[in-house]
């Protein structure tokens, strides 16, 4: 326990020092709050935003966009990966256009999306959905194709039909890759959200940041960035927890000397 505490303490030394230097530099007038607010002001701004309920409101709006976009991306990416992964014909039809689209820098589609979908919620959700579709598709497709053929054969010998093979052998075999895809998709989803929320939003963390920019409130901008970062961390932790639960029993996840 003592080792653990001292480890945590050692890890905290340099961030705390940086924060202190930042605060001191700001007090000494090394840079104005218009360039970068000091930590104390950021903490204050965060407190006020939280207390007024504004932070929660914007957070929920952003979260809603990510959940909706990611949900669509997950469904679309999985469906395409299943079609391409489970049949040669499907691969020929689906994989080529997906590989071509994948090389497109999708954030560059924002102008087109605005033309197509206007400036409401649709282009924002669509951008998140598009961005997260590719990592899901690519990883699940690779996972399905990478399933151990010998296990598929064992399933065949023991009388599994095609549906049974997909359910008991192929999908569980592809699950680790699919979860890697999900983790990537989450990362892309946040990135897309940040970009999408620059499009004429009137709510959401991105709006909070854009609004603060207009009033030169760097403290609020940093609060918004910190919220983005924390959302990313929480999402990653969620996927990890999901992985631990879904991949029970797999050799790579067994702790040493268990069972």
């Amino acid at each position: 326990m003592r080792i653990r505490i001292s480890f945590v303490a050692r890890r905290l030394i340099s961030p705390l020092l940086i924060l202190a230097a930042w605060q001191a530099a700001s007090w000494l007038g090394a840079f104005s709050p218009r360039v970068l607010a000091p930590p104390s002001a950021i903490l204050m701004a965060a407190w006020k935003l939280a207390a007024s309920g504004a932070l929660l409101h914007h957070l929920l709006v952003s979260l809603g966009r990510v959940v909706a976009g990611l949900g669509i991306g997950l469904a679309l990416g999985s469906a395409l990966a299943l079609v391409a992964g489970l049949s040669r014909l499907g691969e020929d039809i689906v994989d080529a256009p997906m590989q071509m689209l994948r090389t497109l820098p999708f954030l560059g589609l924002v102008p087109l999306f605005i033309l197509w979908f206007g400036i409401g919620e649709t282009p924002k959700i669509a951008l998140v959905a598009l961005g997260s579709t590719f990592p899901i598709y690519l990883n699940l497709f690779a996972g399905i194709r990478g399933v151990d053929r010998r296990l598929v054969e064992a399933g065949q010998v023991f009388g599994l039909d095609r549906a049974g093979l997909i359910r008991h052998v192929i999908l569980p075999g592809a699950l680790p890759s699919a979860l890697v895809g999900l983790r990537y998709a989450l990362g892309v989803a946040w990135l897309s959200l940040v970009v999408a929320e620059q499009i004429n939003a009137n709510a959401g963390i991105g709006f909070l940041i854009a609004d603060a920019r207009d009033f030169l409130r760097t403290d609020i901008i940093v609060v918004g960035l910190l919220v983005y970062a924390m959302l990313g961390l929480v999402a990653d932790a969620l996927v990890r927890a999901l992985e631990r639960r879904a991949l029970r029993g797999r050799p790579s996840l067994l702790p040493m000397g268990s069972a």
Binding site: E153, A154, G155, F158, L160, G164, H168, P172, G249, R250
Partner: peptide
């Protein structure tokens, strides 16, 4: 088979009950 070819994601009895 020469190797057991058990499904790593199924417990022992579920492997035996497969199909």
């Amino acid at each position: 088979f020469q190797e057991p070819r058990l499904l790593p994601w199924k417990s022992v009895w579920r492997n035996v009950a497969l199909g």
